[in-house]
Amino acid sequence: MLSDEDFKAVFGMTRSAFANLPLWKQQNLKKEKGLF
């Protein structure tokens, strides 16, 4: 599990902003970052 700081560094957004994205968009971002 990423820390909040690492999460923001990897995804360029906060966890709450990420959580507001549609599920497909979350999955695409995870795949792009190799976290899926």
Rank of each mutant, 00 (worst) to 15 (best):
K8I: 13
L29H: 03
E5D: 11
Q27E: 15
Q27Y: 13
W24P: 04
E5F: 07
M1D: 14
K33Q: 07
L21Q: 03
P22A: 03
N28A: 15
M13N: 00
E32L: 10
N28I: 14
S3D: 11
Q26L: 03
K30V: 14
A9N: 12
S3Y: 05
A9G: 08
D6E: 14
G12W: 00
D4A: 05
S16H: 11
Q27P: 01
L23M: 10
L21F: 03
L35T: 08
V10Q: 08
S16R: 11
G12V: 00
S3N: 10
L21I: 02
N20E: 15
K33T: 07
A17Y: 05
T14L: 04
K31C: 13
L29K: 02
L23T: 08
D4L: 03
K31G: 07
F11Y: 11
E5Y: 07
K8N: 10
K8W: 14
Q27W: 09
K30H: 09
F18Y: 06
S16T: 13
M13S: 01
G34S: 08
G12K: 03
E5R: 06
K30N: 09
G34M: 10
N28R: 14
K8A: 11
F36T: 13
K30Q: 13
K25Q: 14
E5P: 05
L2T: 06
A17L: 05
W24T: 06
K25R: 09
E5S: 08
F36W: 13
E5V: 07
L21K: 00
F36E: 13
G34N: 10
K33M: 08
Q26N: 01
F36Y: 11
G34E: 09
D6Q: 13
W24C: 09
Q26P: 00
G34D: 08
N28C: 13
Q26Y: 01
N28D: 14
K25S: 07
M13V: 06
A9I: 14
K30W: 15
M1W: 15
K8P: 03
A19E: 15
M13C: 05
E5K: 08
K33A: 12
M1H: 13
N28Y: 14
A17P: 00
L21T: 01
G34K: 06
Q27D: 14
E32W: 06
A9F: 12
G12T: 01
A17F: 05
L35R: 10
K25I: 14
P22Q: 02
P22G: 01
R15Y: 06
L29G: 02
R15Q: 07
L23R: 11
L23F: 12
G12H: 04
E5C: 06
D4V: 04
S3P: 04
Q26C: 01
W24I: 07
A17N: 06
D4Y: 03
N28T: 12
G34V: 08
W24E: 10
K33I: 09
G12D: 05
F7T: 01
D6W: 15
L2G: 05
L29D: 01
F11P: 00
S16W: 11
D4N: 05
M1S: 12
T14S: 12
F18N: 00
N20C: 10
P22T: 03
N20S: 14
L21H: 00
K31V: 11
K30Y: 15
L35C: 15
D6A: 13
D4E: 12
F11A: 02
L29Q: 02
P22C: 04
G34H: 08
N28M: 15
L21V: 01
L23W: 13
L21Y: 04
T14D: 11
L2I: 09
L21A: 02
S16Q: 14
V10Y: 08
L23I: 11
M1R: 10
G12R: 02
S3G: 05
M13D: 02
L29I: 10
V10E: 06
S3W: 04
